[in-house]
Design a protein around this nucleic acid. Structure first.
Lengths: 219, 219
DNA sequence: CTCCGTTTGTTGAAATTTCAACATATTTAT
DNA sequence: ATAAATATGTTGAAATTTCAACAAACGGAG
């Protein structure tokens, strides 16, 4: 557990919790670490929504396949980020999404009930943990709201530009890499891949962007 | 304040908090009540995201107008529901949405900082309040996720059916009223109003639904 | 009850998106 | 290094959505 301290320290869930307290707390919470290979399913749709995940190394995608077989990507999960917490905290009986590893991953899993119901030891830092979880859930709601902001644009071009603008802001630079390949970006923006490729070419010809694969420059 | 007790009791934020404690707590939080007429702006985009709103009577819509002038409706707010809490809790500098009264409204406003930072009186129920807020934020995230699930459908018909199916489930009946007129439903589903009307007529002709204005029956 | 403003439904043309098919580029495996 | 697999770009046809314009239905005020 100790070797992950640097990563966990950056995790919003453990804000203001010191190393020694963190380690005993993780013990108290029954936190466990699991490994997943590329393309493996970390959580499957329909599974009980019991665990909160924390990405330690590697990355994953939150995905939903609808009734008609269309894949929709909800978000990308990078190291230090928490995932599936909203479903667990809201007490959903089962997960409405699937989480799939993009690459080999180390994931910390914590039973959400151990966080919500203060342990018998009554760890001093439990209240801080719940407060942090609340903050994290607020950010998660904002993240969803932002995705709605992007996909509520009516055309492929507008969705793409809204997405790229936000990415540039995040990277604090007009040059950045996106975490999606073309098909994935299309599934995130909820548009057709070939139409997306065509739109990217068009923006490039118009001198609005430069791009090669996952790398973009906004001009 | 006391006359609103029955409504507040049903508000998820005050779960497990008894009447006498609730009233002193609201005082401690500096809760205030404001009235808004139909079509009035309760919160405007760009305002500081400071207050959490609780709808006491009436209803409102959470709306965003984008760069191109398209209106997108994020959600509808009914009595006992909390709104704008995600933006306030996440500490956004300003609101990315506007909240507009559908009809005359009574709204309770609470400065979010008073909730997040335990008061000097150190109310006994403050921890419960934060716990309730966390639960509420989790539900809000799920609500956004559900909206994404609906609007990620590729066609107007699929979006509409996904929406109606969820409404039927909510009403626990195949007969129900929706809180949107046609233009509003179109702005919620992120489609064109006339195309939506056409699709509703088509579903009606095909015997899949019955409908008159805001009333729907799923067959 | 009637008038008037609003909402809903309808239509056809224009624009856009999707789909399928294939060419090219890039990466991976052997 | 080469072959195979995967990812990206391109294209034209088909399907769908948007847009504008108008007709019909509805609801509230007087």
């Amino acid at each position: 557990m100790k070797k992950y301290f640097e990563i966990l320290q950056k995790c919003s869930l453990f804000n203001k919790i010191e190393e020694e307290n963190l380690i005993s707390m993780l013990d108290c919470l029954g936190a466990k670490i699991e490994l997943f290979d590329k393309k493996y399913t970390i959580f499957a749709e329909g599974n009980p929504a019991k665990y909160i995940g924390i990405m330690l190394t590697g990355s994953a995608q939150i995905v939903r396949i609808d009734y008609y077989g269309n894949r929709s990507i909800l978000s990308n999960v990078e190291p230090t980020e928490v995932f599936a917490e909203a479903f667990a905290c809201a007490g959903l009986p089962s997960l409405p999404v699937t989480v799939i590893a993009n690459e080999p991953c180390e994931v910390m899993l914590i039973d959400c009930n151990h966080i919500l119901h203060t342990c018998t030891n009554n760890c001093v830092f439990h209240q801080q943990l719940i407060f942090n979880l609340m903050k994290d859930l607020a950010s998660k709601a904002i993240m969803f709201q932002q995705k709605i902001e992007i996909t509520s644009q009516r055309s492929t071009r507008e969705k793409l530009m809204a997405y790229l603008t936000i990415q540039a802001k995040k990277a604090d630079s007009n040059r950045f890499d996106i975490p999606f390949d073309r098909q994935e970006l299309a599934d995130y923006l909820e548009v057709d891949r070939s139409g997306l490729s065509a739109e990217i070419s068009k923006l490039r010809r118009e001198g609005i962007i430069e791009n090669h694969r996952k790398h973009f420059i906004l001009l």
